[in-house]
Amino acid sequence: MRKQSVILRTAAHVLLPLLLLFSAFLLLRGHNAPGGGFIAGLVASAALALYLFSLGIASARHALGVDPRRLIGAGLVIAIGSALPAAFFGDAFFTGRWLTLDWFPSGPLKLGTPLLFDLGVYLVVIGSVMTIVLTLAEAEERPDAPSNEGD
């Protein structure tokens, strides 16, 4: 992949943390306002893809920190794990369990298994999109990548 313009590269450095923060915000607000794990995951993936386009594959992998395939697995584990607490209370699989914390002056904080599930969705989306994007990008860059012969 060719080196991109200086402006884009500089902007990407600033934009990545901002966009990731935004995606976390979307994830957390999703239950009451537009947002949620799926959308947040897509925003985070788009941010990482932008980073990849401007700074190259190695930097993108470094920024991601883990192999995206692991994110898929971790996300699925979290999502399924969020369904299990209900089983201990004798409810049906995936029945939401909520914990209300009255520690803050701004109002009660409600934490529930659906949030955990949303986190799982978030991770799976990032993992899947980044796996695909990175794989395609690396196939593009590697000199001995398969060319389009014959088909």
Partner: peptide, 8 residues
């Protein structure tokens, strides 16, 4: 569901 965003 403890949420106002019905879709989510």
């Amino acid at each position: 569901g403890h949420g106002q965003n019905i879709v989510n």
